[in-house]
Design a protein around this nucleic acid. Structure first.
Length: 1147
RNA sequence: GCCCCGGUGGUGAAACUGGUAGACACGCAGGACUUAAAAUCCUGUUUGCAGCAAUGCAAGUAACGGUUCAAUUCCGUUCCGGGGCACCA
């Protein structure tokens, strides 16, 4: 019986599925364990061999923990919002939802073939409304929270509002600063708009103006990596910085807690370091310098207040607000010129020429806060407006950039550290002793820092200050395929939707191009965006007269329709029924609870009898004609339609109105009251408690960035189906933190930082019980692709007359790598000869060209290459035969062409075409991807799993190479033969195992357990190989031993383990077995082969009892022949005995 | 420039807190079985020198130096590769 992996794997995958073997319950007496993978973006290219590396690692760990008696949560889902799907939609017109759906199906199919133990019933997809409902919900939590500086945590914004209303915002010390401080009375007197503006400055999710990369030609906002050298990546159009309203997360408030939290988690040092760098905390002081007669002072930020007496100049960022004020008349022209120069420089340029010194003197002088010495004030682009205060103090003897600046502009340099400053370069250490520094004289610089700060604070010229490099996180994207913001802008004020109104479903789009004014594609879906209620007749008049602003109500489509409806409505108003007249008298003039009603007011094509737009309440009075059959149907349809737009309808019959108008009144006002309650607080579109109507209401047209959905998905897995809350507190308390999180380093500062922040906010608000999401992080290395290149001759040659050769009629010629690698000048001559054989009628000059110029490297698909040798037949068929007629010049100069010519001809044709190779990122566009399906098909999932692990340590990046997979496959076949013999069939027996056999088993148990715990899977695989090799060597076929080995192996190779486990006659799945217990007694040895070194060099090896003591060992060693030979009769100087390890004799 | 991580046979790699460097596998070479192939199995495989051989000696973990009875492991300097940050005051 052969190892038929195809049958086995399929069979067991089905059995697991049928038995729901991987379904996990939130209710279990077992201890919980949570193993998580970073969920993938389902790209159209499908899975490549790089993806499963981490998945296999986590799968092994999950299965291992399960065997160890844990209730293991090991889910998988899809990060399915994102740019690639949108880009694809732009190109092909296919809706991202469709392509995403398709891609996910492919991914799942591929994943299932590898035999992962995911509980698919817990799958999440970030683009699914039932998921992003809660992303939006958490966004609202962020929006409706602020960071309380006293408690250092998030609190509901309602608390802040209450505080403002009762106590205002008063300064702790000092005077009130207008715009920042206010009394409770002032707060209460502010308009809603003013209050909202103040609150926006505290909300954890907030909107503000920020700079974006704006490309006029493309009419769109670009991400940083879509901008290359100041122009757009697509089309090379100019890109400028433009201020636009954006959303942000106030992550800077969490900087300190994010920093502290790192000490509580088990991440790699480099990962922690990266996060620390990103947060970029620096401690220093802010100091104030007064300038001439101006009341305003220049604030500088410095980490080196100890060098305050070495200040020779101040430098402001060119964008600094004070620049225009302090510039002197003489310098005005020079400053203007410099500012113009700066404007032309992109960030990239500024970065590219780091060493270039530019700047301009403002003509102003600041006063040194201690000495009173006048200090020139400059501006220079090396000072960044966005960091610190946008101003620095220049200390040339202590800072290399300041030094270069002073030298360049001939500013005299003050030396405050004596000999420690050479005059040749700045001394930026903190080790020198200060001189020339008044009260700091004689102090070491690093000690002087604290003293300088306290003195500064004492004199009121500055204060201690902590700065962070991290900026608030941009949270809006001008894109389509993302979560819409649950925000409506009413007259410029952001109003959040009610939780009840979620999810705000992403509307279907037909086009994905940018909207006007840099807005996202959603801005083009007018009927979705514009929630402005129908205008009053007066406003309507106004609007109709303005030609370029054709607005006809928010649900109305065409101008004509609207005109007709209007006319019809007007007509209706002149033909009121009696009941309508009575009702109108009742509701008009804000008669009922102060709500304004309109009669016969068109809402799109419909004309309700009465409507209160504030609460979206419609009153219909039944006329006789409503009894007709078709009218009834129409009414139903209309009601449904209006409901969709949030309108509610109450109906009265003529009779009711006529008979008891009081009852009618009560009904209406009750209804209004109910509706106000129901849609209380912040629901948009006049459903607010307020009385005023709005003149414009537009939905936010940006969408959330990719990291929104991924910032909390690990919580959703715990309670994926819950439609009451994002994740029940019981579920999150049961599972707690993610015990092991496996993923790539590329998310070090993005995803990991954001999800850590979200977790902290949710924790602060009491919604979950832990404040770090991931207890342990395992970084999987990247599997790189090994690309193959062919080199196409570039026909940009001049012929001998100097004219360019026209390549169009010339054949495509490919050069073999070795041909090019022989870097000699001869290659060109040789090549010229070869080409002349092919193309007889042109004579050209190749010698003049540099070798880098005459060929283009082209990626060849790795599947057509065996090692480095290109399969020419396949290559000719590739890309729909694009290179069908190409000519290949092989390694040995042989020419292979699809036609015959008078070449070297008759000689034996065995030239190989060798490709160039390079290690690059695995990507479809580089044709270097390897699909796991192919390998699974050829060797089986178990082989594939074990091979990926065998490749090397999980954390290590390595180029993909298939050549070793045979070895792993052989191992599994060898394992199989312990159970089944080719000839004899089944060979296992129930015999009692010997100690020697148990020793092999328990040695393996020990090693596998250790290695699995420490994610050292490559060595674990090798331990399995050793085990099987040894069992084979001693012909052990005993069930007692083998079935234990199967349990050990099942996390690594679940299918074959399951098959053999079953064959041995066991009940149930091996995945539910109990992990073998290590019994040390089998590992004890009576004797040990001790290596004996002389002076650290291994000379002999002697067998000693395990329980030997140093004296006995010494005697045995000295009696040894080889050792005696080395001792040459002398006694050893020293005898070192490490029990159980080795012996070293020093002579 | 700064901060991390790494550098070991022809290749992927192993070596627990300093204690037999190269486990395991690939590749290669030789052999067995076979008409042949596939599959399987066996032997060898760091380098140099000596030997018919078992084996012995020497060198060897990027380079140099140090600590130690003993260094791939700890320390210092330099070189190379990978990743991150970058006029951050």
């Amino acid at each position: 019986m052969d190892y038929d992996f195809r049958r086995i794997e399929k069979a067991w995958q089905n059995k697991w599925k049928d038995a729901e073997a991987y379904k996990v319950s939130n209710d279990s007496p077992k201890p919980s364990f949570y193993v998580l993978d970073m969920f993938p973006y389902p790209s159209g290219a499908g899975l490549h061999v790089g993806h499963p590396l981490g998945y296999i690692a986590s799968d092994i760990y999950s299965r291992y923990k399960r065997l160890k008696g844990f209730n293991v949560l090991h889910p998988m889902g899809f990060d399915s919002f994102g740019l690639p799907a949108e880009q694809y939609a732009l190109e092909t017109g296919q809706h991202p939802a469709e392509t995403t759906e398709k891609n996910i199906a492919t991914f799942k199919d591929q994943l299932d073939k590898i035999g992962f133990c995911y509980d698919w019933s817990r799958e999440v997809r970030t683009s699914d409304p039932s998921y992003y409902k809660w992303t939006q919900w958490i966004f609202l939590k962020l929006y409706n929270s602020y960071f309380c500086n006293t408690q250092q945590k998030a609190r509901p914004i309602a608390d802040l509002i209450e505080k403002y209303a009762v106590k205002g915002a008063m300064p702790k010390t000092g005077e009130m600063i207008p715009g920042r401080h206010f009394t409770a009375d002032q707060w209460n007197a502010y308009t809603k708009t003013e209050q909202e503006e103040i609150l926006m400055k505290r909300r954890l999710a907030f909107s503000a103006f920020g700079e974006v990369n704006w490309c006029e030609a493309l009419g769109t906002v670009l991400a940083n990596d879509e901008v290359v050298n100041g122009v757009s990546e697509r089309g090379s159009h100019p890109v400028i910085k433009k201020k636009m309203r954006q959303w942000y997360l106030r992550i800077t408030q969490y900087a300190d807690r994010l920093l502290q939290g790192l000490d509580t988690v088990d991440f790699s040092d480099s990962m922690k370091e990266m996060q620390r760098n990103w947060i970029g905390k620096s401690e220093g002081a802010e100091m104030e310098f007064s300038i001439g007669d101006y009341s305003e002072k220049i604030k500088v930020y410095t980490t080196r207040p100890d060098t305050i007496f070495g200040v020779d100049f101040l430098v402001l960022a060119p964008e600094h607000v004070l620049v225009s004020q302090i510039t002197s008349a003489e310098q005005q022209h020079a400053i203007d010129e410099y500012l113009n120069y700066v404007k032309t420089r992109s960030d990239r340029e500024r970065m590219a020429e780091v060493k270039q010194v530019t700047g301009c003197f403002t003509g102003a002088y600041a006063k040194h806060p201690f000495t009173g010495k006048p200090i020139p004030v400059w501006i220079a682009e090396y000072v960044l407006a966005g960091y610190g205060t946008g101003a620095i103090m220049g200390v040339p003897c202590g800072d290399q950039r300041d030094f270069a600046f002073a030298k360049h502009f001939n500013i005299p340099i003050t030396n405050i550290i004596g000999d420690a400053y050479t005059g040749e370069e700045a001394n930026s250490t903190k080790e020198a002793t200060l001189q020339n520094s008044d009260f700091l004289n004689g102090l070491l610089m690093k000690d002087a820092i604290a003293i300088a700060i306290s003195k500064t604070e004492e004199l009121g010229i500055g204060k201690r200050k902590v700065n962070y490099r991290m900026r608030d996180a941009g949270f809006s994207r001008q894109r389509y395929w993302g979560e819409p913001f649950p925000i409506v802008w009413e007259d410029g004020v952001a109003i959040a939707l009610n939780e009840n109104d979620l999810p705000l479903v992403l509307p279907h789009a037909e086009k994905y191009g940018p909207g006007p004014e840099g807005e996202g594609p959603l801005a083009n879906i007018t009927e979705w965006v514009d929630l402005t209620p129908n205008p009053s007749p007066k406003e309507r008049e106004l609007r109709e007269h303005s030609e370029d602003q054709k607005e006809y109500g928010y649900i109305t489509s065409t101008a004509d329709e609207w005109k007709n409806t209007l006319a019809f409505a007007k007509q209706n108003r002149h033909h009121q029924t009696e009941a309508e007249e009575i009702l109108w008298e009742l509701v008009r003039n804000r008669n009922i609870s102060g709500y304004k009603f309109r009669r016969q007011h068109p809402i799109s094509g419909f004309i309700p009898d009465f409507v209160c737009l504030e609460q979206k309440l419609i009153i219909e009075v039944g006329g006789d004609y409503h009894n007709k059959k078709e009218q009834e149907l129409f009414d139903v349809a209309r009601e449904k339609w209006l409901n969709e737009f949030g309108f509610e309808i109450i109906k009265f019959t003529n009779q009711e109105v006529a008979e008891d108008i009081n009852k009618v009144e009560r009904t209406i006002s009750q209804k209004l009251e109910d509706m106000q309650k129901k849609y209380s607080a912040q629901s948009p579109l006049l459903r607010r408690g307020g009385r005023g109507e709005v003149s414009s209401a537009r939905r936010e047209t940006s969408t959330m960035p990719g990291y929104a959905g991924s910032s909390w998905y690990f919580l959703r897995y715990m309670d994926p189906k819950n439609d009451q809350t994002f994740c029940d507190r019981k579920a999150s308390d049961y599972w707690g933190q993610v015990d092991v999180y496996v993923g790539g380093t590329e998310h070090a500062v993005g995803h990991l930082l954001y999800s850590r922040m979200w977790t902290k906010v949710l924790f602060d608000l009491g919604l979950i019980g832990f404040e770090e999401p991931f207890k342990k992080l395992v970084n999987q290395g990247m599997i790189q692709g090994s690309s193959r290149f062919v080199y196409r001759l570039n026909w940009k040659f001049k012929d001998v007359s100097g004219a360019m050769i026209n390549p169009e009629n010339l054949p495509t010629i490919f050069l073999s790598a070795g041909y090019l690698n022989s870097k000699s000048k001869d290659v060109q001559k040789l090549l010229r000869e070869e080409i002349s054989k092919i193309v007889n009628d042109i004579d050209f000059d190749i010698d003049a060209l540099s070798d880098s110029y005459y060929y283009d490297p082209i990626h060849a698909d790795v599947s057509m290459v065996d090692g480095l040798e290109l399969n020419l037949d396949e290559f000719r068929k590739w890309r729909k035969g694009e290179f069908e007629t190409a000519i290949f010049i092989c390694e040995n100069g042989e020419i292979k062409a699809p036609f015959s010519f008078d070449g070297p001809g008759d000689s034996v044709k065995e030239g190989k075409f060798i490709c160039g190779s390079e290690v690059e990122k695995m990507s479809k566009s580089k044709y270097n991807t390897v699909n796991p399906d192919v390998l699974v098909e050829k060797y089986g999932a178990d082989t594939f799993r074990m091979y990926e692990m065998f490749l090397g340590p999980v954390e290590q990046s390595k180029p993909w190479d298939t050549k070793g997979i045979e070895g792993v496959h052989r191992f599994l076949k060898k394992l199989w033969r312990l159970f089944y013999d080719d000839v004899k069939g089944k060979v296992w027996s129930d015999e009692k195992a010997s100690d020697a056999e148990f020793k092999i088993l328990h040695k393996t148990i020990k090693k596998i357990e250790q290695d699995t715990e420490s994610f050292s899977y490559n060595t674990a695989v090798s331990a399995f190989m050793v085990c099987v090799n040894e069992l084979t060597d001693i012909k052990c076929h005993k069930k007692e031993v083998l079935e234990q080995v199967l349990i050990l192996l099942s996390p690594y190779a679940p299918h074959i383990s399951e098959e053999l486990w079953d064959a041995l006659g066991n009940e149930g799945f091996v995945i539910d077995a109990t992990y073998p217990t290590l019994e040390e007694k089998y590992l004890l040895e009576a004797t040990k082969e001790y290596p004996v070194s002389i002076n650290g060099k291994l000379r002999a090896s002697i067998n000693l009892p395990t329980e030997v003591n140093q004296h006995e060992a010494e005697q045995a060693v000295l009696a040894n022949e080889t050792i005696q030979k080395w001792l040459e009769g002398n006694p050893p100087k020293k005898f070192i005995f490490v029990k159980g390890r080795m012996i070293n004799v020093v002579i």
